[in-house]
Amino acid sequence: MNGLMAFSNELAAAVEHAGRATVGVNGRRRFGSTGVHWRSGLIVTADHTVEVDEDVTVTTPDGRTLAATVAGRDPGIDVAILRVDAGDLPVADIATEPARVGHIVLAVGRGPRASWGVVSAIGDGQRGRTERADLLNLDLTLYPGFSGGPLVDARGRVVGVTTSGPARHFQVAIPAATVSRVLDELGRRGRIPRAYLGVGTQSVRLSETLRQRLGTDQRAAVIVVDVQPDSPASAAGLVIGDVIVALGGARIADPGDLRAALRPEQVGETVTVSIVRGGEPRDVRLTVGERSRRA
């Protein structure tokens, strides 16, 4: 049973390794969540677990409490970045290879605590290239307080950030590469901008005729029910009744897809929006705006 013993020791070492860069995040009333010391002084956690913008603290593995400030949020993928004076807190070992379906993974929570399982699916297998399509679906238990913590491989390298979502019934992880892109954006601009279109939408079914016309198997899209004045959408000429089928090459089947397709790094960039207007497909060029920062 030497092989099994070696594997068991490897898993325990993985938890220990990842646990050194795993912190407790105290940003909500009921109970704390978990965070990963991703880059020096920057803690990644799940956005939904940081309910306040002030008086957030972080608990280090050796039990110290550090004051933290919210450096940025990306609610589209449930990521928040906290800034701390990290001192000698080790930085997590981030995997360079993406996780694959079937990989044995460990979720690490503050404490440290751990659970294990496998990557059961990636995305839902049918959506286009939105960030949602990269989500790691996990066959493991995310225990209370685990959200925002690292998902690690058998060597303790971080392959994602776990979240059960605000409703606490998901077991998913945001892939490490996606999280790193958010941090890159923070480094580049000093903040995480929130992309803004200025439309209100609702899901709508695409008829068989329309699907044939568009040459797609996509069954749903969103219909524009509101266009805000002086918004990027109005500047691009979008009007109520337009049906948005895709944005920047990503399929849009519901309003959540639209939010997920709008990445912080697209702010200021021009993207192609594929729409149907009066039964006719057409492409509209739209320059993604930035949602004004909260007062």
Partner: peptide, 14 residues
């Protein structure tokens, strides 16, 4: 039964 060395029980062990 044989008993394990309690010190060897680690978080993450199978």
């Amino acid at each position: 039964a044989t008993v394990a060395d309690a010190a060897r029980v680690r978080i993450g062990s199978l």
